[in-house]
Amino acid sequence: MLRTIDLRGRTLSPADMLAAVPRATQARAEALDTATRIVDDVRERGEEALREQAERFDRVTGHEIRVPAQHIADALETLAPAVRDALDEAIRRVRIASEAQVPERRITRIGAGATITQRWQPVHRAGVYIPGGKAVYPSSVIMNVVPAQVAGVEQIALASPPQADQGGRVHPTILAAAGLLGITEVYAIGGAGAIGSFAHGVAGIGLDPVDVLSGPGNNYVASAKRAVAGVVGTDSEAG
């Protein structure tokens, strides 16, 4: 049921406005509680927990969680030429913009023989989450992977939900975008479970913990980032 809040004829301060427009505090708390339990389950039970979550949330069983290279090759082979051209152009543009944002090394001389050097070092390993519910977001692959590559991150792992209508595979357009960028470490994992996997690692599928993770998602993905804060670096809670 849509609720209407009539504020006409009233002069409200910022504090009054915040009080008049309700915030979803209960939903936020419930999402954090659920996401924390999912993350903890992955940390404790690894692959077994991921398979149970895939069956529960994605209606998928028996799928290959670590995506074989052939799945990526198949996706590239069947990618429509017009879509490939669009993705290639997007990659080119995001790479140019990302390169312009890399800070240069700065040296400050504070006295005879005394200098301070400020330099930016990339993390060793990054995890990228790409949502895959009602829509397909190859743009998210590009916008998260390309900046990491430009920064010089050596290892980039990607996770996206297994799709029931694709036989448990990651959506082919997502796989194709990963293939265009040379990403070979891809996992069919969705939601908060993917965030937990990146933060804690899953030895059974060869997934090592990452230093930082990024990517959009729903309320549970954002809450899972909150749950792993301090264990791994995270981006903004987009979604």
Rank of each mutant, 00 (worst) to 15 (best):
H171L: 02
P216N: 09
H63Q: 12
I110M: 12
V39N: 07
G62M: 07
A177T: 08
V153Y: 02
A178C: 11
F198S: 07
G167Q: 10
W120Q: 02
Q163T: 05
I174H: 06
I72N: 01
V67I: 07
E154D: 14
V123Y: 10
V60C: 11
E44G: 05
F57K: 03
I107R: 15
R56W: 00
R43S: 11
Y129S: 09
R8P: 09
G215Q: 09
Y137R: 07
M1R: 05
L18G: 13
V145Q: 00
A97I: 01
V21P: 05
A194I: 13
A126H: 03
V102F: 04
H124A: 15
A176H: 02
T108N: 03
A27M: 12
I38Q: 13
D16H: 09
H63T: 00
G9T: 11
D33M: 04
L87H: 07
V153S: 00
W120H: 14
L50Y: 10
G239R: 10
V210A: 14
S223T: 04
I38Y: 09
I205T: 07
L158K: 05
R45V: 04
Y137M: 09
E99W: 00
I189D: 10
A15F: 08
Q101S: 13
A29Q: 13
D88F: 00
R125P: 11
R43L: 11
G62K: 08
E237C: 03
V153C: 02
P138R: 06
G204T: 08
G190Y: 08
D85K: 14
G46N: 12
R56Y: 02
Y129F: 15
H200Y: 15
A112L: 14
R109C: 07
